[in-house]
Design a protein around this nucleic acid. Sequence first.
DNA 1: GGTAAGATCAGC
DNA 2: CTGATCTTACCT
Length: 202
Amino acid sequence: MSAERLATDPVTAARRLLGAQLTGRGVRAMIVEVEAYGGPPDCPWPDAASHSFRGPRPRNMVMFGPAGYLYTYVSHGIHVCANVVATYDGVPGAVLIRAAAVEDGVDVAHSRRGAVVTAALARGPGNLCSALGITMADNGIDLFSDASPIRLTLGEPHTAMSGPRVGVSTAADRPWRFWLPAYPEVSAYRRSPRAPAPGLSD
DNA sequence: GGTAAGATCAGC
DNA sequence: CTGATCTTACCT
């Protein structure tokens, strides 16, 4: 069971997810950009930017479960974003999948995204879920089960770049985003307009 | 029961 | 830079 390789701190899990294959509904893509998210103040990896920071809630329950499960949420009422749950059962942590390079099923991904898009079909967490057909109905599924419509296959370690996470208003300087160099799917960095001046947070 | 903010994206 | 669009969480 490869899920054991994700039963570790969110940063290590994030690095291990780079280069992994995510297969969903006729599309196979290699993960090229991720962000680590931790838990409440009293856990080993406190993280004010994490959805689990204020403890378990109906929405974030799966973040508190075992590693290797899918946590989805709706952002700004518009986009679905996908996380892979990390850490140990009972300790919250997750890795947001921000971008992937579509390697198989390009036509399927293309039809889901719309005619205008040419390259970078899965650039950005919302676009990625759109391309792979991931919805809120997939929240809580086991990514390592043969029965799941979305599946994950880990690969070999990669050399990664790192930097601050995109769009978060708290802990804005923490370098918990990781990506593989030279992929056009990697997002441009955008600091949240609500974040304090660089150097003053976290 | 009201309201404000948000791990986004596309179009000016 | 701004608007779209809606769920969640927190307040009264």
